[in-house]
Nucleic acid binder design. Structure first.
Lengths: 221, 221
DNA sequence: AGAAAAAGGTGGTCTGACCACTTGGATTCT
DNA sequence: AGAATCCAAGTGGTCAGACCACCTTTTTCT
């Protein structure tokens, strides 16, 4: 009984429920979109009050990890869908230093991804095709995300996503101009041909172009 | 009345409360450490049930935005102290690949910190003294943390901390052997003398030593 | 004055009661 | 039989009230 308190000795019940939930998810192999036991059932199963279950649910909901639908139930959400950033942005927006940190860290991840792709000679031919054939539907985010995905570090990808969300919230979406597209192709081809110089130059150029636009956007803040 | 629902038409009350809280914080100029009105008071002021206030509080608490102390009250936390990543980690980092990703990402942050320190010629003399005079009380974590702090990217620091916690949990704490201490001093002095070669060599050596020990530890997993 | 006890405030939790909404099966109509 | 309707059960959303445990402050007792 009351596994909630036995395993994770923390005081708060709702924290215990969060942990239980996580265990339950991994043990039962629940995937995104699957249904989670109802509040009432959980409260019985775990010997806790329904309100405590709700507290845990609401916390996870705000984090974007679950989704509740009135009259239907509670469901696991696609982890990629987090709206963490709305929240964070809502509370942190003011801090200029934090914004700089976000930019630095994001850049770091991007560079590292490029480095990894370069050093491990990972295949980017698909990406080149994608960019080359693009007819305007491609977003900047999508491309950079693809690049990071090729580098095959899911964690970095997640962090980058969070940071990008945050930045987008403040600055807005970056557009792909023909100019950027060209540099982007240079960069990708540089990766493919193992041409370090080209990659570095292209990346630097893209950064400069972006910064130029960012500065413009910033005026309005 | 019920400002909660009037302004932000969203259905859920607790979401409205989160927004109200945000407004309240910026309007009253609350800083980290300041006390937030009690659950009972808020529930009266906003014409909502106390349980709804609690749901909002628990969500913000899990996000690390507020802190509650039984018998005392609820307080604002350092916004930059969010444990977003902890949460993500808790739910996402479960397999071997994820662990590799953690190591890569952690290394990336460390390297970037070194790069920043090197390029911006930041001062590490204090660190050198600290390491040199160390009488065994210094932990590996502390040193690397200091290095990252010198690079002055708080966000990276937070992420690194989380990743390090995660790794420590799985692998255990790294010790500082005389061998590592020596390489560490080389590295720091390299930074100070703007000697790129020394820094790179030292970092590589330290990595190798660490990996050797990590491999040993891993046997027991 | 100092120590001990009581009072008041605060978060932590549970219970029970409604409400609003969705769903699916039973009922009714054609 | 088939289609449209209705209704009961299940689920989340919210509230009110009751305790408990804990901390601080005040009062009381010595």
């Amino acid at each position: 009984m009351s596994k909630v308190n036995s395993l994770h000795s923390q005081s708060k019940v709702y924290i215990g429920i969060v942990h239980q939930l996580r265990d339950m998810i991994s043990k039962d192999g629940l995937k995104q979109g699957d249904k989670i036991p109802s509040e009432r059932e959980l409260s019985e199963r775990l010997n806790v009050g329904r309100s405590s279950v709700r507290e845990a649910f609401r916390a996870l909901e705000l984090l974007g990890l679950i989704e509740t639908r009135r009259g239907e139930g509670t469901f696991l959400r696609d982890f990629r869908d987090h709206h963490l950033i709305d929240l964070l942005g809502m509370f942190i927006l003011q801090d200029q230093k934090a914004q700089d940190d976000v930019k630095c860290t994001k850049t770091m991840i991007e560079k590292e991804a490029l480095r990894t792709i370069f050093c491990q000679k990972l295949d980017v031919s698909g990406l080149i095709t994608k960019v080359a054939e693009n007819k305007g539907t491609l977003t900047w985010r999508e491309i950079v995300e693809d690049i990071i995905l090729v580098s095959n570090n899911y964690l970095s990808h997640r962090i980058w996503n969070v940071l990008n969300d945050y930045e987008t919230l403040i600055i807005g979406e970056k557009k792909i101009t023909p100019e950027i597209k060209e540099k982007l192709l240079n960069l990708l081809q540089g990766l493919e041909k193992q041409d370090k110089e080209t990659v570095q130059t292209a990346y630097k150029q893209i950064s400069e172009i972006s910064d130029r636009e960012l500065t413009n956007s910033n005026i309005f803040l």
